[in-house]
């Protein structure tokens, strides 16, 4: 039985009620918040394992709430919204969300997304590298810590997992689908925009010059490649 706390942030009481009813007896405990402000207060008080966040809310709204949560926490965030335009999705991912689910959704889909958002690539065994260091960039996979030029860089779990997978296969182009399925889960594969947003965010964090990446390279029409040289230990 899973035992995780999920914070449901939605201004519609009947949706919070439905989420509670559908998730509670599956091993999740559900906390509710009516607004973004309430959600932030609740996260400070009792950090949840995952946040289900509505976009269209009065007050500070879903996107702002997402950014505010990201300032202090790496908790996985799934956006629930009735809008399904690509632009909205990219905006939400840019704001730091891990995933985006369009309302209305079936329970299986939601559960799959929740599992995917909460899953971590397993701690590296013998196969993957434990550390990466080339003088500028240092990644400690066991401690999930990244430093750039001696300064510590905060990555969200999904960003870290994505980086981990790419670094584990240095100098090899990884196709989009492979990346999505490994990092997000087997239900994913077509969400190329997720990769675009997350790779951009990673570049901003770990590239000395984000506009001219030297680590995270785009392989046109294929996917992405980590240019690790021989620095990986």
């Amino acid at each position: 039985m899973i035992n995780a706390t999920i914070l449901v942030v939605d201004d519609e009481p009947q949706l919070r009620r439905a989420m509670k009813a559908t998730l509670t007896d599956l091993g999740y405990s559900v906390i509710e918040a009516k607004t973004g402000e309430e959600a932030l207060a609740s996260i400070r008080q009792e950090p949840p394992d995952l946040v289900l966040l509505d976009l269209n809310m009065p007050g500070i709204g879903g996107l702002e709430t997402c950014r505010a949560i990201r300032e202090t926490s790496d908790v996985p965030i799934i956006i629930l919204s009735v809008r399904n335009a690509e632009r909205e999705k990219v905006q939400a991912l840019d704001a730091g969300a891990d995933d985006y689910v369009t309302k209305p959704f079936g329970i299986q889909e939601l559960l799959a997304r929740i599992r995917a958002a909460m899953r971590r690539t397993p701690a590296p065994g013998d196969s993957g590298p434990r550390r990466f260091a080339d003088g500028e960039l240092e990644i400690d996979f066991a401690a999930r810590r990244v430093t750039l030029k001696g300064r510590s860089v905060r990555l969200t779990p999904k960003e870290f997992d994505l980086l981990h997978f790419l670094v584990s296969h240095p100098d090899k182009p990884i196709p989009h689908r492979k990346l999505l399925q490994t990092v997000w889960g087997p239900d994913y594969g077509d969400e190329v925009e997720y990769l675009r947003v997350f790779v951009n965010q990673l570049r901003k964090k770990i590239e000395p010059v984000p506009s001219r990446p030297k680590y995270l390279l785009t392989e046109p029409w294929v996917g992405y490649r980590f240019a690790g040289l021989a620095a990986a230990e």
Partner: peptide, 10 residues
């Protein structure tokens, strides 16, 4: 879509 979402998830 709000009531529909509640209905579908249930």
């Amino acid at each position: 879509k709000t009531p529909l979402t509640a209905i579908r998830s249930c």
